[in-house]
Amino acid sequence: MKKLTGLIVFLVVLYIALAIAVPSQGFALNNYNLAERIGQYGVISLGAALVIITGGIDLSIGSVVVLSATACAILLTDKSFGLDPMLALPLVLGGGAVIGLIHGLLITKMNLPPFMVTLCGLFIYRGVARTISGNMSKGIGNQCIELRHFLYEGDIFGLPRFLVIYIILAIIAAIFLHFSVYGRYLYAIGGNEKAAKYSGIATDKYKILSYVLCSTLAAFFGILFLMKNNAVTPSSDGFFLELYAIAGAVLGGCSLRGGEGTVIGITIGTAIMWILPNLTNMWGVPSELEFIVIGSALLLGAIMDEKLRPAAKNA
């Protein structure tokens, strides 16, 4: 846990800055909004982290999100489908799983680099989303009120539903990664794939599993996205989402070389990723300066993380 000192300090500093900047009457509302965002985007950070821990990368997350949101909207509301959510949701999640399976198979069985496979996915799935939607926004209008209520609207014990969902997923992920054999193998593969192989671990199977989980979580995020925004525009939604997800994971201690990262770290990384744009909005930073501020602040966070880390051991 020592490794996270710098990050936690940075997060606390940002939060204090936020508390100062937000007018007191808006403070509770802003906390709620922020918690909702962290919960929402944490879902894909977890997915990205699973793949990164095995030493892979998934650049297709944003496109999978858009495709699943589009497909979900069509399945739920299109006249020719109009499916019950109990049927539509498993279909969408299953679709995400299939996409991950394809990535995993291409990467392990055909030995293609993950970067290329998922980059191609990034293009293809967005194209598919635009095609099946006829390049139009797809919304759910005022339908599926029950589903929206179940997943999004209203708080549970004062917490946004997205955050509650994330907490549940994070606990499952923590058990999976830190206490189960499956997680142990993902770390071993990321640390030294050959060692894992020589220990008789079916490394391909576990790598595929990580891509399946990542894409399934991305598909789930797509559903959440649809619930929150009521609609998805396949041509422009979800750009850079994979970079936010990857940045959240890496900031939180996942090494891009693989084999490192904790659920707590990922959560903190994601929180920092989303507290920053919130803070710039509170400061009233002009739109054109926003990215400069966020980029510089992230850099500052990375430097603090490095500086506050206990002295590196000799290799």
């Binding site: 500093v13 204090i16 800055a17 936020l18 100062i20 900047a21 803070l279 509170m282 400061w283």
Partner: peptide, 14 residues
């Protein structure tokens, strides 16, 4: 020193 920057900006805004 860097960590102070966000706090200063917030104070200024406030």
């Amino acid at each position: 020193v860097g960590a102070m920057i966000p706090l200063m900006v917030s104070l200024y805004v406030r």
